[in-house]
Amino acid sequence: MSTVLETRGLNKRFGAVIAAADIAIAIGPQEVVGIIGANGAGKTTFINMVTGYLKPDSGAILYRDREITALGPRAVTRLGIHRSFQIPQIFPELSVFDNLLVALGIAAETGITFWRPLRTPALTERAEEILERYRIDEYRDQAVGVLPQGARKLLDIAMAMVGAPTVLLLDEPTSGISADEKMAMMDTIMAVLAAAEVTVLFVEHDMEVVARYARRVAAFADGAIIADGDPDTVLGDSEVRTTVVGPELHRRG
């Protein structure tokens, strides 16, 4: 089995806007794919379709050669494809610890869960481990609504990792993070993901981050993949340079 995740001819329109045009990509086990493209190029739509939040107008999504196009977010998650969000999707009034406990409780759900307390020693211990692994233990008991952006992003990813996914899609893991913290944060994330042997797709605007962590890069423009290959080739591609890389540099400046 050479591919874990594959899409064939995905199309999606919102009125006059083409958000996905014939997207075909095949991703093998433990690949780390960086997804680049200007705003509105269809990156988030792609993630939303793969994880069942949006249905493509046409085309197919396959996970380990099984078609999953019609499945919703929950079913896709249950299969082992998890995601993080550009705006962290967390439970703002609960503490960091409770956020993780809920994630752990759902992942461990077995039998009757109406009576047995969630706060078991086993789950508590795992939550503590995760706090350390993602270096967010200092925020343990704070409501996540008031955390700094970096900690919220890390928690969002930590929660996505709780169910031990095979594939993880990260939607702009470093957006809203200051330039000097980005690399440290990505180091933390990528170390955990590599140890867990997860196949990773991450959307990223910072080309330095892409060049450093991606083993393969797919460039999006107007809903289509305009280049796909190893980072040096894609980032050096002239069309990519004019439509994606140039504008991104400009954006940062």
Binding site: T51, Y53, G72, P73, R74, T77, R78, H82, R83, Q89, I90, F91, P92, E93, L94, D98, L101, V102, A103, G105, I106, A107, A108, E109, T113, F114, W115, R116, P117, L118, R119, M159, A160, V162, G163
Partner: peptide, 24 residues
């Protein structure tokens, strides 16, 4: 205090995440 109870907190705070954690 149970998982089902906490899922309620999750639904109040952020339904999308609850589904993406794999609960209905």
């Amino acid at each position: 205090q149970s998982t089902m109870g906490y899922i309620g907190e999750g639904i109040r705070e952020n339904e999308v995440r609850v589904e993406y954690l794999g609960a209905s």
